[in-house]
């Protein structure tokens, strides 16, 4: 067992105990929501796990590294940032995918850019955002988010 796993489970247990001492009924309801969410997120999680297996089994690290590794430079970061901006998937399943890419040749910057644009820039949800918040805010938010995602990614590449 590594410390991360212990930390995450202790954190959840701590929250649960704290909640339970405050309000029993609310906590029971929370656990019900948790069980439901678990089974809702399970299929995408299993799908991404299969995809990761196939990806690492068939695509050699040298190929991944060529497209989004250190040698791909800024183009690689830009490419995967665009991919992240367009794709629409739950953030939770993007982390194991990002982790597997990092292990098999992708650069820190590329992985950081992918996660950041994936979560912050929503091409698929843009029409809804425009409708609720207006064109100006929605376009500025998504556009600037894309730029800062790349800046964050480049800084991460330097410091890590």
């Amino acid at each position: 067992m590594n410390p991360t796993i212990i930390f995450i489970n202790l954190f959840a247990l701590g929250c649960l105990i704290l909640a339970f001492t405050k309000d029993r009924a609310k906590t029971e309801q929370s656990v019900k929501v948790a069980v439901k969410s678990f089974f809702r997120i399970l299929p995408p999680v299993l799908i991404i796990i299969i995809v990761i297996g196939l990806l690492l089994g068939f695509v050699p690290p040298s190929e991944i590294s060529k497209v989004i590794g250190e040698q791909s430079g800024f183009d690689g970061v830009l490419f995967i940032a665009l991919l992240g901006a367009i794709l629409h998937m739950p953030a939770i399943i993007s982390f194991p995918l990002a982790g597997s890419l990092l292990k098999s040749g992708a650069s820190i910057s590329a992985v950081a850019a992918f996660i950041t644009t994936l979560t912050m820039v929503g091409t698929a949800t843009l029409p809804l955002e425009v409708k609720e918040l207006g064109k100006k805010i929605a376009l500025l938010r998504n556009g600037i988010s894309f730029v800062i995602a790349i800046v964050i990614a480049l800084i991460m590449g330097v410091i890590l």
């Binding site: 954190f11 959840a12 929501v33 069980v35 796990i49 990761i52 068939f58 597997s100």
Partner: peptide
């Protein structure tokens, strides 16, 4: 290689996913 890789990621996910969902459920309700 494919089954070993997938199985490793499956285990890594399953040891944290219930905890993550509990935190999520608590925030949703509270």
């Amino acid at each position: 290689i494919v089954t070993t890789t997938s199985w490793d990621y499956f285990l890594e996910m399953m040891v944290i996913l219930p905890a993550v969902m509990v935190v999520m459920g608590l925030f949703t309700v509270w």
